[in-house]
């Protein structure tokens, strides 16, 4: 009897410790049951392909959220990245590699600026990144004169569809690399350690002799870099640089981080679980498309499922702490 109870306790602990994964598993089972097309190779490959950009941008967002901040500019920097890559290729006739490099650099600079506002001038992260959000969106539309920029066929769009293996696209590979790299940095290097600790208690970390300002600025730069990369990927998938890219992306990324167990007050969150958060959102969107749910009700259902997922996440975390 006693032993049975212990086993039960162990199982419960295991489930609670991995609650994010169980939410994903649950959703996966539901989706598989709901539509016969869900569990096909083509569909699953498509999900990974479609959400590679979201994963990358969410990872950038995670770094910011870990420090207790927030970055609302990710979607706009993505749009800027999307437009600028195409513009540099078409108007300046730059080679792809160079266009991408300049785009990533600009995205990083944008993030750096937000970070500077947050860490140095002490403008609230919400406000600073909100300002950055409208600036970058405006810049994206200005550069493209409000119309999408078509890249020459067979250039950057090749990347968008290229496959390494029959079931593995290059975009997915890039996303996996970004996640692996960020996971390594967060868990294994002093930089990641400091970021996490700053989010838990900035004052204590400052008094332990760590340069808090520098680290806070850097996470926004990382977020800017990831967002610009997200923009490049958006262009590569469609071949079009669009000022409308990344619309609402900031909210998806925040939702992904939170579903993945990150705390908006900082100090808590993991890269891999953030990916799970993106996959939860991805599956919700995918299954509703497969079931031909019209797009407006989709948004409502998506919102409700986000609430449920986060409630489940919080509820199980709370049980675990007690």
């Amino acid at each position: 009897m006693e032993k049975e109870k212990k086993n039960y306790q162990k199982l419960l602990d295991f489930i609670l410790a991995n609650n994010t994964y169980f939410i994903l598993l649950l959703l996966f089972i539901i989706c598989s049951a709901a539509s016969e097309y869900f569990l096909t190779m083509a569909n699953l490959v498509n999900i990974c392909q479609q959400y590679a950009g979201t994963v990358i941008v969410s990872i950038g967002m995670l770094f910011v959220i870990l420090t207790g901040g927030i970055d609302l500019s990710v979607g706009s920097i993505m749009a800027f990245g999307s437009v600028f890559t195409a513009y540099a290729m078409v108007e300046w006739k730059l080679p792809i590699v160079l266009s991408v490099a300049v785009t990533l650099l600009l995205g990083t600079l944008g993030g750096l600026f937000t970070g500077f506002l947050v860490a140095r001038t002490k403008i609230a992260a919400f406000v600073a990144s909100l300002a950055m959000m409208t600036i970058c969106r405006g810049a994206a539309y200005m550069i493209s004169h409000g119309t999408p920029i078509n890249t020459p066929a067979g250039t950057i769009s090749q990347l968008g569809t290229a496959k390494l293996l029959p079931f593995l696209t290059w975009l997915t590979v890039i996303a996996i690399l970004v996640v692996a790299l960020s996971s390594f940095f967060l868990n294994k290097t002093a930089y990641g350690r400091k970021v996490i600790m700053i989010g838990s208690n900035e004052e204590a970390v400052h008094l332990a002799g760590i340069n808090v300002t520098q680290h806070v600025i850097s996470v926004y730069a990382i977020s800017g870099l990831c967002s610009a990369l997200g923009g490049v990927i958006a262009t590569s998938r469609t071949g079009i640089g669009s000022g409308a890219a990344g619309q609402g992306m900031e909210l998806d990324c925040i939702a992904a981080c939170v579903i993945g167990g990150a705390s908006l007050s900082g100090g808590q969150g993991s890269s891999v679980k953030t990916v799970v958060g993106v996959l939860v959102l991805a599956m919700i969107g995918n299954i509703m498309n497969l079931l031909s749910v019209p797009s407006y009700p989709q948004d409502i259902i998506k919102g409700i499922i986000i609430i449920l997922a986060v409630l489940l996440q919080q509820g199980t975390s709370r049980i675990r702490q007690n």
């Binding site: 996490i196 600790m197 208690n201 204590a204 970390v205 008094l207 100090g267």
Partner: peptide, 12 residues
């Protein structure tokens, strides 16, 4: 508030 990062582990 100042001496410890309370919600992180002892080692960190």
């Amino acid at each position: 508030k100042q001496g410890l990062v309370l919600e992180q582990n002892i080692e960190m």
